[in-house]
Amino acid sequence: MLEARLAQAAVLKKTLDAIKELVTDANFDCSDGGISLQAMDNSHVALVSLLLRADGFEPYRCDRNLALGINLNSLSKVLRSAQNEDIITLKAADDPDNLSLTFESQNQDRISEYEMKLMDIDQEHLGIPETAYAAVITMPAAEFQRICRDLSGISESVTIDASKDGVKFASAGDIGNGSVTLKQTHNPEEPALSTSIELSESVTLTFSLKYLVNFTKATPLAGAVTLQMSNDVPLLVEYKMEGGYLRYYLAPKIQD
C-alpha cells in the first residue's frame, strides 16, 4: 500500500496547476523512492517529468510499486478543496481502484476526506539519457516567464542563442521582431535573482513559445529555472523544489 503525508498541500496544488494543461491523464508511479510521473502532451512535442522524493513526505510508505492512473483535471478539482496550508495524506491499497486524499488543517480542527476513482492508463515510458548539455542557463523563474510572455506577443516561435556574450531570446513575426539578451549576473545576497551561463559550445535552437509559456505555469514552485540546451536535442527546462523537481522537455523546431 501507499501512504504519503505532505506537510503543505500547496506543493501538490501548484504542481498540478503547472502540468494539467499539458497532460490530461497520467500514471503517478509510486515506489519506495517517491512518486514520479512522466507524460507527453497530446502532440508529443513536450514531455513532463515530475519527481516528489520520499524524503519530501513525512511519513512515506510504499510497500510495492504502484501506478496510479489519474485524470489530472479530476485531481485538480479535488485539490481545490484543500487549503494551501493543509496537511495532505495520499493513500492507496495494493492494486487500487481509488486514491484516498485527506486534508487536515494545521491545528487539526478540520479533516476533509475524498476518494478519487483511478483509471487504467497504458502509457509509453521514454528513456531519457543523462546528457551533458552544451549550455546551462540558470535565471530567475519570473524573468523567464516574462520573456516568454512578452515574445509570444510577437511570434509563435523563439530562437534561443547561447554564446559567450550571453543568452539571447529572439522572435520575429508579422508585426515586427523583438529580442531580450541576458548577461551573466551575480547577486550574492539573492542567488535566485542571479543569471548564470555555463557554456562548452555555442547553441542556437528554435522552440514553440506556446509550450514555453505553458511551462512557466511552474513559476510559483521555484525562484529559479534552469534551461539546458545542446544543438539538435530537446530543451530541458527544470524547476527544482524542496523534495523534488519538475522538468519539461521540448522538441526543437528544425530547419528542413
Binding site: M40, H44, L126, Y249, A251
Partner: peptide, 14 residues
C-alpha cells in the same frame, strides 16, 4: 522551412 519535431524522435521507448 522550419518544422516542429517530436520528443519521440529523440528518446526511445523504455
Amino acid at each position: 522551412n522550419v518544422s516542429q519535431s517530436t520528443i519521440e524522435e529523440f528518446y526511445k521507448e523504455h
